[in-house]
Amino acid sequence: MTQEPNFEPKILGFLCRWCSYAGADLAGTSRKKYPANIRIIKIPCSGRIDPLLIIRALRNGFDGVLVSGCHPGDCHYQTGNYRARRRIAITKKFLEYMGIEPERLQASWVSASEGGKFAEVVAEITADLKKLGPNRLFNDK
C-alpha cells in the first residue's frame, strides 16, 4: 500500500443500540475527543452482524469496519454477542486468507458507561488504518 500523507480512513461502525451506541453517545455528551473518521449504523444487537454487511462495506469503499456490542454476559438478548463473536472471528480469519488485512475488521465490547473506551477504540483503529493505508482492494476495474 502506498502511503498518503493526509490519508483519513473511512470507518463504518455497527454499534449495538443497548451498549456501544449509548457508549458512543456518552463519549459525545462527556465531550471526549475521538477522530471523526467513523460513521455509525445502529443495530439492534451485535448478533445482527452478518459477514455480508462487513464485506459489502469494504466493497463500497470503507477502509475498515468496527462491530461493537455489549460485554460477554451483558447482551440484552443473552447470547447475541457470543454468536457475533464466532462470526466475526471466522470472518476476520477468512478475509485474511483472501488477502484483506485483518486490521480492516475490528470488534470491541463497549458498554453504555464506557464513553472513554469507545473514544479510545476509535482512536486506536483510526491510527491502525492510517498505517495500513486506503482500502483500494475493490477499486480497479
Partner: peptide
C-alpha cells in the same frame, strides 16, 4: 472452535453454539 461439520447429529450447529470464553484475543 474445535468444531467439525456434520460429525455429531446431537451437537448444536457451530453458529448456534458458543463458549463464554473464546476468540477473545480478536476483540478489543
Amino acid at each position: 472452535f474445535e468444531y467439525q461439520a456434520g460429525t455429531d447429529k446431537d451437537a448444536l450447529p457451530l453458529m448456534a453454539a458458543y463458549e463464554s470464553k473464546e476468540a477473545e484475543d480478536l476483540i478489543r
